[in-house]
Design a protein around this nucleic acid. Structure first.
Lengths: 207, 207
DNA sequence: CATATAATCGAGTAATTACTCATATTACCA
DNA sequence: TGGTAATATGAGTAATTACTCGATTATATG
């Protein structure tokens, strides 16, 4: 069962030459762009291959099926999201907690415009595909880096569980930014204000 | 353009007899179940008609296309979500703010199990379909009821904008519950704890 | 009861889509 | 340089899907 699921999702063949790696990368990038720009419904293997500038046959050399492309895309985006969160928090300590949180929220808003559709698609597909182990690994890998960061903030944030925060904050922040930035017209000022309120409120919540 | 979009989404014909209303309701319920149980990919018009126990022809009597079904579903779920939020907050005042928030989080978790896939699908489709006006109407309609509620809490929550909270909190809460309840195995205790922390933190955030 | 209107039915169609496979091209190495 | 393994190609296919339309059945009304 697990093996059957894994075979849906694990690569069919590993790229052994440079151009093969480029092909795989192009496929993932094309998939990301399609979903981000035109939604899940536009995500089909023929369109991905065409946008990647690669034949449909090459696509199936490296991915056993459509779901495997989505699974790889999910892993890629999660790793990027966690990293950008850590980067944003890694501002000069002089900025203080609120300054850091504001940087975090701004980073989320910056990403939002290009990636809102992609992020929501990933949310949906995660529930269906056997990718949770991979995502947990990504989360745990960020543990040490996060811990150093949290040391600096420990005084201001007693009783905060850093790993729990790392699981809670990215979806939380994305949801809030989404709620305000997806309006027509988008209310970006409000999005920032509400994002800061939500994140700071969570971090500083009295126990 | 707006008219073209509206025609994708507004009903083709209004039901004038009881059985026609039942047909429309069955179609929406079937669509909701399909998405909730098997994801967006399983949402196709033939499957919806079959599960609704209705012919494909009848489906197209009332909906001009697949997107119109999704749009109607989005409106239905939003109205329900806002109402359940208001209901959950409408606990005896003796419960205090934290008690009310806990009731709110529990309600969200209860809904989560059946509706996580549906909710994330709606998130994604909202961005593509012209439904924002309808959703804003739903939000505004809840204004008065919410205001009464907020009167009672005003002392505890100075400087909170109730309408902003109504836009921010549902997605925020859903995201946090999602993040913890979608694990295998789900960590429901943690989901509740994190949900309460996030909502209470947002509400009580120092300005 | 008769007639009109509303509702339902479902086989059929044109278009789309996931995926295969036989063939051709490119890179590597003895 | 020749051989071979890796990579790329894309026309083709079986399956799925959104939607139409002509015919049938149910309901309301006078």
């Amino acid at each position: 069962m697990t093996a059957a699921l894994a075979s849906l999702v694990s690569p069919r063949k590993l790229p052994r030459q440079r151009r093969a790696e480029a092909t795989v990368a192009a496929i993932l990038e094309a998939a990301a762009q399609l979903v981000a720009q035109r939604g899940l419904a536009a995500f089909n293997t023929n369109a991905v291959a065409e946008r990647a500038g690669v034949s449909i046959g090459s696509l199936y050399q490296y991915f056993p099926g459509k779901d495997a492309i989505m699974a790889a895309l999910i892993a890629r985006q999660h790793a990027r999201q966690v990293q950008s969160l850590l980067d944003a928090l890694d501002t000069p300590p002089t900025a203080g907690l609120e300054g850091r949180v504001r940087a975090l929220v701004r980073a989320a808003m910056h990403h939002h415009h290009d990636n809102a559709l992609l992020a929501s698609a990933i949310d949906h597909e995660e529930a269906r595909l056997p990718v949770r182990d991979v995502l947990d690994q990504i989360l745990e890998a960020a543990g040490p880096q996060l811990h150093v960061l949290m040391e600096e903030l420990r005084a201001e944030l007693p009783g905060l569980d850093p790993l729990a925060a790392l699981r809670t904050l990215p979806p939380l922040l994305r949801a809030v930014v989404d709620a305000w930035a997806n309006l027509v017209p988008p209310d970006l000022e409000r999005a920032e204000k509400e994002g800061v309120r939500a994140v700071l409120g969570y971090l500083q919540a009295a126990r």
